[in-house]
């Protein structure tokens, strides 16, 4: 069988320098969702939900970047924009040096999407219940390689099923016949089918039981090695994040608070929000007695986020400047980015 690369007709990424440039760069990304008020005839925009409000981050080839934050902080929206499922309000996303939102032909757009895939959180609602597994996983080939022979598509589907730990006979079944863990395997198979370079995993294990969660985490680890994949792994569970990622970005209310290698986040925590987040995790060890920092109040609404640093109303270090000036994400130490006026390092 020929490799998928030989089908490639568009040469978009020849200018990309793998050694020096990140594979994905997200530059000052904003995604606002308008809230409109309906009258009889007209609707007008009364406010914006600032789901993502100025995110900067980058993803190096072959690494796993963990994106962590509480619900509603904009993790998923960031990922959806980064795979071009949503248009940004402002800012840009560069994939291999190319702005993916620049005007491009259908062929070029497909070429980008071939390399950028996503796995969704809920394995129950992300698979069409009326389609057989074979058709579900064949679909990416139908879209991206319409000239491929049916037999070849079929054998590729079986190959990918084996890779995610499923059997040949599963191809003729329907999604409802699978358990949650197996469905997530199908979701992974579907995104992996056309051999992308980057996979964005949106909470891929949070709907699963712990014993099954471990199976999926191990599978992802193996696949990453075998296919030299780059992962952006979104989760709200810091112990999962610590387990899978090489670098971590902590998000709060549409902004990146801290981004650094995983080990450093736990040893040299710099942002007060990361500090409180780490201390809030219940530890499965009865002997650990912690002095917990318990944050007051709730995450503010992204419709009307606080001025200055979005974390200042709940921060234990906040001073006057924090409510006035928005701190920028700066590289305080090599590879350790923090946006805070009074970091802990």
């Amino acid at each position: 069988m020929v490799t998928l690369e030989e089908y490639e007709t568009v040469d978009l990424f020849s200018n990309w320098d793998q050694k020096t440039q990140p594979i994905i760069t997200i530059d000052n990304l904003k995604k606002w969702f308008p809230v409109s008020q309906q009258s009889i005839l007209f609707s007008r925009v009364v406010a914006n939900i600032k789901a993502v409000d100025g995110v900067n981050l980058f993803l190096n080839k072959g690494e796993t970047l963990g994106l962590v934050g509480e619900s509603g902080c904009g993790k998923s929206t960031t990922a959806r924009v980064a795979v071009k499922l949503e248009e940004p309000t402002e800012g840009s996303v560069y994939f291999k040096g190319i702005d993916i939102f620049q005007p491009m032909s259908r062929e070029e757009e497909l070429a980008v999407k071939r390399q950028l895939q996503m796995v969704f959180q809920d394995p129950y609602s992300s698979l069409n219940p009326r389609r057989m597994v074979l058709d579900l996983i064949k679909e990416p080939f139908d879209i991206h390689y319409p000239d491929m022979l049916y037999e070849e598509k079929e054998s590729r589907v079986l190959e990918i099923l084996a890779k995610v730990g499923l059997e040949d006979y599963h191809a003729l079944r329907y999604p409802h016949e699978f358990s949650g863990g197996q469905r997530q395997r199908l979701g992974i198979a579907r995104s992996l089918a056309i051999h992308p370079e980057v996979i964005l995993l949106d909470e891929p294990v949070s709907a699963l039981d712990v014993s099954v969660q471990a199976q999926i985490l191990n599978l992802l680890h193996d696949l990453q090695k075998e296919f030299n994949l780059t992962f952006m792994f979104i989760a709200h569970d810091l112990s999962v994040i610590k387990h899978v990622s090489d670098r971590v970005a902590v998000m709060y209310l549409g902004k990146i608070m801290e981004m650094c290698p995983t080990g450093e986040l736990f040893r040299k925590t710099a942002h007060p929000y990361s500090v409180s987040l780490l201390s809030a995790i219940p530890r499965p060890d009865p002997r650990i007695k912690m002095d917990r920092i318990i944050l007051e109040g709730d995450v503010p609404s992204p419709i009307n986020p606080p001025s200055g640093c979005p974390f200042h109303p709940r921060c234990y270090k906040a001073q006057e400047i924090c409510s006035k000036v928005t701190p920028q994400l700066e590289e305080l130490q090599p590879n350790h980015y923090v946006s805070c006026h009074f970091p802990e390092i």
Binding site: S179, G181, Q182, D209, V210, S211, V212, Q213, A214, Q215, L217, N218, H221, L238, S239, V240, K242, H243, V244, F266, I281, R283, P284, D285
Partner: peptide
């Protein structure tokens, strides 16, 4: 206990329980 990723342990592979509930 072995299958949960922990903040204390450093491991690349988790112990898994085969099969499903």
């Amino acid at each position: 206990f072995e299958s949960i990723p922990s903040l204390e342990k450093d491991k690349t592979r988790l112990e898994t329980i085969p099969g499903n509930v």
